[in-house]
Computed example of a mutant assay.
Amino acid sequence: MQPRAVDAAGAAHSVAGADARIVSLVPSITETLFALGLERQIVGRTGFCVHPRDKVRAVPKVGGTKAVKLDAIRALRPTHLIVNVDENERDTVEQLRAFVPHIVVTHPQTPRDNLALYTLLGTIFGREDEAQRLSTALEARLHEAAAHSFAAQNVLYLIWREPWMSVARDTYIAAMLRLVNWHTLPDVYGGRVGAARYPTLDFDDAPWLAQVDRVLLSSEPYRFTAAHRDALARDPRLSGKRIELIDGEMTSWYGARAIYGIDYLLRQTAAA
């Protein structure tokens, strides 16, 4: 019997042939597909799919993760479309089902979930050996992180301003940070999907702010800069907090990037 892989939506997928034509609407998945050696089968990507930089330039863009150009995808005649629960709009995905034969839904919520993601993509596209190599590398990084003893830190991880927005504790970002014993505040949980996963904040109505040890300004989706960091350092409400920039790709991108992301966080703690 032909092996089948089950995606995050519970849909079973058979092994694709060598003629598979893949469109990815998820930047970290696009990078992972290249890591699996599928560059000849990737026919479309979003404008936010920027890694690996030397290879994605040759792949046509089909809009953004949410502002998707349906006609552009239709013209590429994909056999497979890869989407993510958090990053892509359900209505858009349903419209794409009308003409894309296979839609693969992903939703890693912890670093370890990447192991299942590697297996899913490796099985569907016949890259089991490459998927195993990624799994071995990730397992080594997870083991290395678990072997360390990190001082506990409460962190405010900011992803947006005007309004300020952070991350709930059941997001992938928060799970990555917990690998180095950094715990996100506010202490809220947003559920599987929805805006509650990325709560808005009012510094004047945040009694938990006193418990924050460090404020992390992510490079995405909002591109915080040194100017933002310096302005927050002058804010009396954040007096005494360590305020620093952090590479959002390393903390929020799953797939192959998680391997480098754990290394990055280990270096961040070593430099603290």
Rank of each mutant, 00 (worst) to 15 (best):
C49P: 07
A140V: 11
P163V: 02
G126H: 00
A146P: 08
E162W: 11
F48E: 10
L134R: 02
W160C: 02
L138C: 03
R161W: 09
P108L: 01
L115D: 02
L138W: 06
D230M: 07
V105K: 08
E144K: 09
Q132S: 12
G17N: 08
P111Y: 03
V215A: 03
H148D: 13
V180E: 00
T251I: 14
A271P: 01
D263M: 01
R257K: 06
L209A: 10
F125V: 12
A227L: 11
I103V: 11
P78S: 09
P3A: 08
I246F: 15
A175D: 09
A116G: 12
G194M: 01
I246E: 09
T106E: 08
S135D: 14
A271N: 07
Q41C: 13
F48P: 06
P207H: 06
A75G: 15
Y198T: 11
A146H: 05
Y157F: 07
V100K: 00
R45C: 14
Y254C: 10
T136Y: 10
V83C: 08
P221D: 09
L33E: 00
V155T: 06
L134N: 04
F203M: 04
A152R: 09
A147T: 07
A196F: 09
D170V: 02
L266H: 00
L96G: 12
D19H: 13
W253Y: 12
F224D: 11
L158P: 00
Q109W: 11
D91C: 10
V56R: 10
Q211M: 08
L158H: 00
P52R: 01
R45W: 10
N181M: 01
R53P: 15
V104L: 10
G194S: 00
H228A: 04
G44C: 09
L96H: 09
A151V: 07
D247H: 10
A174P: 00
D7Q: 04
I159N: 06
A258C: 14
H107Y: 15
A20G: 14
V43R: 02
R197Y: 03
R74H: 13
G248Y: 04
A270I: 01
T200A: 05
H148E: 15
A35E: 11
A67Y: 13
L266A: 00
T65Q: 05
L232I: 03
L156N: 07
L217A: 06
T92Y: 08
L216H: 03
A145S: 02
T92A: 13
W182D: 01
R257A: 07
A20I: 03
A146F: 03
I73R: 05
P3M: 04
I103Y: 02
Y189G: 13
H107R: 10
T79K: 10
G261L: 05
D91L: 11
D54H: 12
Q211G: 07
S252I: 11
A206W: 05
P78W: 01
R133M: 11
V188C: 13
D247E: 08
R4Q: 13
G37E: 04
L238W: 03
R267H: 04
P221A: 10
F203I: 14
A72M: 05
W182C: 04
L117S: 06
L266I: 02
E94K: 13
